[in-house]
Each structure stands twice: as C-alpha cells, then as structure tokens.
C-alpha cells in the first residue's frame, strides 16, 4: 500500500521489515487515518523517500521522530560527564553574578547611582553623556524601575567583563595563527546565527534553572563573538610598517603585543566591546525566561499576563539602558581614539 513497498521487496528486506511490525509507536498521521478512514491517504504521487515515508513501507525503518529522540538521548548520556566538568568550572560565574546583584541592590541608591555616574564620567569625560545618563537614571528611579534596571546592569557588567577577559586573548591567538583563525571562524559563525532561544535548551538540562550561571553562560556565549572577531581584526589591521619597525629594533613578541599591537588595535577592540555590551543586553531579556532578574522579567510578565503597560514601560527602560550603554561606550572609544591620535 505504501509507495516504497516495492523497494524493500526488491532488496529482499521484506522479512526484516515485517519482523518489527506493530512494535513501533503510532504516528499522529496514522492515528488520524484510523479515526477517520474516509480521508484515507491519497498522498502525493511520488513522495520523497523520507524516513517517515520509508517507515510506511517498512516498519523496521526508524521514523524521523526517533532521530530527534536519538539526539536527545545522546545529549542526556553525555550530560552527567559534561555537568561534572562544567559545574565546578562555571561555579565562580554564579558567585560573581550573585555578588554583583547583591551589591547593586544592597547598597542604597544614593551610593550606587553616583558611583555609576562617576564611572561614566571617568570613561568618557563628556558632560553631555554624563548629563544624559543622570537624567535617564532619575527617570527610571522616578517610575520605580531603578532596581530592575540596576539588576540588568549588574548582569551585563559581569558578563561583559568575562567576555573581555576571555575574548581578547582568544582574538589575539586568532590574529597570531591563521590555522587557529580558520578553525574558530565556523564556530563563531555558528554562535552568531544560532537562534538565541536555542542556547537555553541544553543549558537547562545541564544546570539548575535557579542558578545564575545558567543565564550567565547563555549571555556570554552569545555576546562574546564580536569582541573576539574585532580583536582579531584589529590586530591584523595594525600598520605593517610599524610592526616592521618594531621588529627592526628587536622587540620581543611580548613587547610587540603590549607596546604596539594592542594599543594600535584598541579602537577596534573597543568597537567589539561596544557590540558585546549591546548583545549582552539583548540576551539578558531573553534570559529572563530562565530566571535572570531585571527588566526582562517585567517584559516577560507583560507577555504572559498581557499587561500591556508593564511590558511597554519595561521595554522603554531597556531601550534607555541600551542607549546609555551605547553612548557611554562610544564616547569612551572616541576618547581613546583621539587620545591616541588615530584619525
């Protein structure tokens, strides 16, 4: 009755096929066909030999759902080993996040906010940007969203910091080794194109949803790519004449890296950091699905309960944070660039 019956008969596999008849689970389609025999399958004239189609002809052949089940099983099998390695390794991340969240919330606003403003002034030395940040924080505090915004900020600060600590050395290694660059680029492409929600699924299996490192890892994995890429690019773009001069005067690789390459690549690296910050912010909202606190939780509440106002105001807060982070990091880049006279 199935299209590919003849194929298995011709191959002499009929006996093997029928051995498993009836033992397999029933598919939704065949269940529907049973309850509604009138709509008996008059499928396409020449169906593609997919797994499900072949199963129709030969019950021993695996269905496609067994394929996905297989992937899941494989992951579950390595899960325990993976967990025993990753759990202690990533534990400091949990501590860091908990610590940062605690500090940002436990300290009174009149300590935290001025400290943040001082930091903003320190990195960008711009009256306009600092004034803008002050007004934004005043607004967020006025509408009682300051705590949520600070939680979001705390998570971003920790994750961006770790992205830089890990990403810059990886970027340097990529710039130094063509082979390493070639092998890492596909992974970076994958990380950038993988839908953000997909990061969360395996992580939920690996770690407890209540642990901060779950969302921490998701954010870092998602946001680390630009800083790696731009560090690599920045170092490769350093003026080769200057590098030659450094070689001529006998600089060691270390002197060259610290004295020439990193300073000259700094504007590019900072552009990468800016991108990393923005991507952390994008991910921190999605990470609220797995208990990341902050403005994302309010957005989630707005979606779940259809509380339009709550969602919109929280969204506005996120936009405000995004603008603040972008302006501050760009002002910092501009300062670095003019300081170092790259025109």
């Amino acid at each position: 009755m199935a299209f590919y019956d003849g194929l298995f008969n011709a191959l002499g596999l009929r006996e093997w096929c029928d051995a498993a008849a009836g033992s397999s689970k029933m598919s939704m389609a065949s269940l529907l066909a049973k309850t509604n025999p009138d709509a008996a399958d008059e499928g396409p004239v020449f169906p593609f030999p997919s797994m499900d189609e072949l199963y129709q002809a030969c019950p021993s052949f695996p269905q496609s759902r067994e394929f996905t089940a297989g992937v899941e099983e494989a992951f579950l099998n390595v899960k325990d080993v993976l967990k025993s390695v990753l759990d202690p390794l990533t534990q400091p991340l949990s501590w860091l996040l908990e610590f940062a969240l605690f500090i940002f919330l436990a300290a009174p606003w009149w300590v935290v906010v001025p400290l943040i403003l001082l930091f903003v002034w320190y990195v960008c030395r711009s009256v306009a940007v600092t004034t803008f940040v002050t007004i934004s924080f005043a607004f967020l505090a006025f509408i009682d969203h300051l705590d949520a915004a600070l939680q979001t900020l705390a998570i971003i600060a920790v994750c961006t910091g770790i992205c830089i600590i890990l990403g810059v050395p990886i970027g340097i290694a990529m710039a130094k080794s063509n082979r390493f660059q070639r092998s890492l680029l596909p992974l970076l492409d994958l990380l950038q194109t993988l839908p953000t929600f997909v990061y969360l699924i395996p992580l939920i299996f690996l770690f407890s949803v209540t642990e901060p490192k779950l969302y921490g890892i998701a954010i870092i994995v998602y946001a680390i790519v630009p800083v790696i890429r731009l560090t690599d690019l920045g170092i490769r773009l350093v003026d080769q004449d200057v590098v030659e001069a450094a070689n001529t005067f006998g600089m060691s690789p270390r002197q060259k890296l610290l004295g020439v390459e990193l300073p000259l690549a700094l504007p590019n690296i900072m552009a990468g950091v800016n991108q990393t910050i923005m991507m952390s912010l994008a991910m921190v909202v999605i990470a609220s699905l797995v208990s990341a606190p902050g403005l994302g939780v309010l957005v989630l509440r707005g979606i779940r309960n259809l509380e339009l106002g709550v969602g919109l105001i929280a969204g506005l807060g996120i936009v405000l944070l995004a603008v603040i982070l972008d302006r501050v990091s760009k002002a910092a880049i501009a300062r670095v660039s003019t300081d170092q006279t790259f025109k």
Partner: peptide, 22 residues
C-alpha cells in the same frame, strides 16, 4: 641572537616613517 643584534648593532629609518602613533 638576531633580536639582540637588531637591538644593539643596527637601526633602520623607514620611507613611511613607521612611528608609533600613540
């Protein structure tokens, strides 16, 4: 040895100056 030689025994001046801009 080459690095030491470059450090102590020879210097170079470049067409495009090759100064460190920072």
């Amino acid at each position: 040895e080459l690095r030491n030689k470059r450090r102590t025994d020879m210097s170079m001046v470049f067409q495009k100056f090759a100064l460190l801009p920072h």
